[in-house]
Amino acid sequence: MPASCEQVITLDGDLHARPAGQLAVAAAKFAADVSLTVGDKTANAKSVLAVMGLGATTGQQVTASATGSDAEEAVAAVVAILADATKVGG
């Protein structure tokens, strides 16, 4: 059974195009399937257009999930980018 991992983070800022791109570049380097869920929308974290299509804004909860051999590292990388890139003024 493949490893899976999930973590929830609350955004400190809106998820703009540049952090969405940074997030997709990072996610695409992992073998695991990585997804982001905001409300009732789920996006493939490796697709920058899908991530931008979430329209995630300040104060929303984002669930990062991954399934695969490197799921834990993938979720940690994605959450770190969400925490850093959506800081106010960031």
């Binding site: 791109g21 695409a28 697709s47 920058v48 257009l49």
Partner: peptide
């Protein structure tokens, strides 16, 4: 949309 998606995935190798 095509160039943004392509550039991001190319950046990941």
């Amino acid at each position: 949309e095509g160039v943004v998606a392509a550039t991001v995935i190319a950046a990941a190798g």
